[in-house]
């Protein structure tokens, strides 16, 4: 029973641990995968509304890049 529990637990890990390799990121590298689908004007418009509602400027992003290579 204990072994069976481990196997079931391992099966859960399999679902979570699928790693996207660096050479498999072609689709993720597309501009359409960015916020607002790569539409710069739409992004600017949404940021304008966000900052107006928040009554502040900045804080809409995160520091650092996303490639994890540097």
């Amino acid at each position: 029973m204990k072994t069976l529990s481990y196997i079931v637990l391992l099966l859960f890990f399999i679902g979570c641990a699928k790693e996207v390799k660096p050479w498999e990121k072609e689709t993720l590298a597309k501009s359409t995968m960015e916020d607002a689908g790569g539409n710069a004007l739409s992004k600017q418009y949404e940021e304008h509304i966000y900052f107006s509602k928040e009554a502040s400027k900045g804080g809409g992003g995160v520091a650092g890049g996303g490639c994890g290579c540097n």
Binding site: K21, P22, W23, E24, K25, C67, G68, C69, N70
Partner: peptide, 15 residues
């Protein structure tokens, strides 16, 4: 087929 890069298995691109 990504067979070469899968064997080298780098952590990022470019490498």
């Amino acid at each position: 087929q990504n067979l070469v890069i899968a064997e080298f298995n780098p952590v990022g691109m470019p490498t």
